[in-house]
């Protein structure tokens, strides 16, 4: 029996993603009304769109078994996790400790996205950035950002 082999891993991955997104789009809108062409319901357009995405994913998946293509580069967990984590951490901290301290913490944590961490340099950079953003955004541009903890 001939074994099915994925010849184009990138396209295969993209195809899987499209199929998943399309299925999600189709079934998550399940309780909405579909309607007809002359009286389109809320599900009409996204429903058709989702099916198109699934069909495209299936087509791409089929071609990825037939035509050779590039492999998927390995994921480097460190930068991905640290950078995205920092975005969430900043959002969590901002209302609690204010812009200045959040900035310092962001700079320090973000440094761990690279292998060589220079703590002193990061602290200095963090302090500099904290002063800069507080002056620029809070005082000069009067953006609604709390500079310190407990600020309204």
């Amino acid at each position: 029996m001939p074994r099915v082999r994925i010849k184009n891993p990138q396209d295969f991955g993209a195809a899987a993603m499209f199929v998943l997104i399309g299925l999600a789009g189709f079934f998550l809108g399940g309780d909405l009304e579909f309607g007809t062409a002359s009286k389109m319901g809320p599900r009409y357009f996204p429903g058709i769109l989702s099916l198109l995405i699934v069909a495209l994913g299936l087509g791409l998946g089929a071609s990825s078994l037939a035509v050779k293509g590039p492999r998927i580069e390995p994921v480097q967990l460190r930068p991905v996790a640290v950078v995205i984590g920092v975005v969430l951490l900043f959002g969590y901290l901002l209302d609690i400790v204010g812009l200045a301290l959040s900035t310092m913490i962001l700079t320090l944590v973000a440094a761990f996205a690279r292998r060589e961490v220079r703590i002193v340099e990061s602290l200095l950079l963090g302090a500099g950035l904290a002063i800069f953003v507080v002056v620029l955004f809070v005082y000069a541009l009067s953006q609604p950002l709390p500079a310190w903890w407990g600020a309204p």
């Binding site: 950078v83 920092v86 975005v87 900043f90 959002g91 812009l99 900035t103 962001l106 700079t107 973000a110 440094a111 996205a113 690279r114 220079r118 340099e121 990061s122 950079l125 963090g126 950035l129 953003v133 955004f137 953006q143 950002l145």
Partner: peptide, 13 residues
């Protein structure tokens, strides 16, 4: 290494 924390910070703000 000095730029990306700043870029990240400005994006978030």
């Amino acid at each position: 290494r000095l730029l990306y924390p700043a870029i990240l910070l400005f994006s978030i703000i």
